[in-house]
Computed example of a mutant assay.
Amino acid sequence: MARVANARMYSANASVRADWKTLLAWVLARAELGWEVIDYDAPAPLSALWAREDLGLAMMCGLPFSQRTPRPTLVAAPVPSPARYGGRPVYFTDIVVRADAPYQRLEDTFGGVVGYTLADSMSGGVALANHLAPYSEAREARLYRKAVGNLIHARGVIEALAAGTIDVGPLDSYYHDLLRRNEPAFAQQVRIIASTEARPIPPLVATAALKPDELARLREALQASTKAPELHAVTERLLLAGFAVPDPADYDVLAQIARPDLPTFEEL
């Protein structure tokens, strides 16, 4: 079976997508794997990409990774370079409002309009719902007068905030940091008022079967990529400190967060 590679999940804009393609092509060449780095752009659903059986090296949200049976092979996970990640393969959900909004605390947004990307997205939906659930339980009433979903990705959340369609929404912190680094004028339309606790970052996975030596070569090439002089500018723009190989069981916590009794945004 021919296999493919893709980093759509963290292709925050056209230049970032090009950098990911450059890095993945370098990794595949070093690992001596003649796979294709494919495009898979929004609004094509990521769930359809992740359902493919020919993925050799693709970014996957940690929630479907933790829920899928059989579970894909975890190849590696990015370690973002900004200080808040502490040199670990983790990320947060940044809860953001429009830059000129009057809100100073998350509680100030209650009574307004909350937005989310997709209900089954960890960073764009589930993590925010989980963060808000205790507030909802304490108030014994709805937090927001309206919820707006299907914003697809972090860009959609920022666009909705800038347009005044929503008052508050979630951003995958690594995606957010990539925008702040590579498209600052766009990112500066919003500001963070809260962040969730750290969770395991979406990993690079394979849904296709990998031979042990292929997996080993991929991991070595990924770890070498952030030390290669010819990729220095690329990895700097991608805010990549390195790649780690977490225990797949680290992601079980994400399936636990997406519990059946978690309130929907229409209930929050």
Rank of each mutant, 00 (worst) to 15 (best):
E159H: 09
G169Y: 09
A162D: 15
P170Q: 08
D172L: 01
I158P: 02
Y175A: 12
P170M: 06
R181H: 11
L171I: 12
P170L: 10
A162T: 06
G164W: 06
L178Y: 06
G156Q: 12
E159T: 14
T165A: 12
N182H: 05
I166N: 00
L179E: 05
G169T: 07
H176L: 01
A185E: 15
V168S: 13
I166L: 01
R181S: 10
L161T: 04
N182I: 06
R155M: 08
A185P: 00
H153C: 10
S173H: 12
D172R: 06
A185K: 14
L171K: 00
A185G: 12
V157C: 12
I158H: 00
T165V: 14
A154Y: 00
T165W: 12
A162H: 13
Y175K: 02
G169C: 07
D172V: 10
Y175C: 03
R180L: 13
I166E: 03
R181A: 15
A185I: 01
V168C: 14
D167V: 05
Y174K: 01
D172P: 02
L171D: 02
A154H: 08
H176E: 08
R155I: 08
R155W: 00
G156V: 14
D177P: 03
L179A: 05
L179G: 02
P184H: 07
H153E: 13
A185N: 10
A163V: 00
F186L: 06
H153S: 14
S173D: 11
D167I: 07
V168G: 10
I158N: 01
A160K: 00
I166K: 00
N182C: 04
I158D: 02
R181K: 15
E183I: 04
G164H: 07
I158L: 12
E183T: 03
D172E: 13
A162R: 13
G169N: 05
N182T: 04
V168L: 13
Y174E: 02
E183N: 14
S173I: 09
P170E: 12
P170C: 10
A185V: 13
L179R: 00
V157W: 09
R180K: 15
I158G: 01
V168H: 05
H176V: 00
T165M: 14
G169S: 06
D167L: 05
V157S: 08
D177C: 00
S173M: 11
D172W: 05
H153I: 06
L171F: 07
G156F: 12
R181F: 03
E159Y: 07
N182R: 04
G164V: 07
G156H: 11
A185H: 09
L161R: 03
A160W: 02
S173L: 08
V168D: 07
Y175F: 15
E183W: 08
R180D: 02
F186A: 04
G169D: 10
H176F: 13
R155K: 15
G169E: 06
D177W: 02
V157T: 15
T165G: 09
D177F: 05
D172Y: 03
I166S: 05
F186C: 05
I158A: 03
F186Y: 07
L161E: 04
H153M: 09
E183R: 01
P184I: 01
D172M: 08
L171G: 01
T165E: 14
G169M: 09
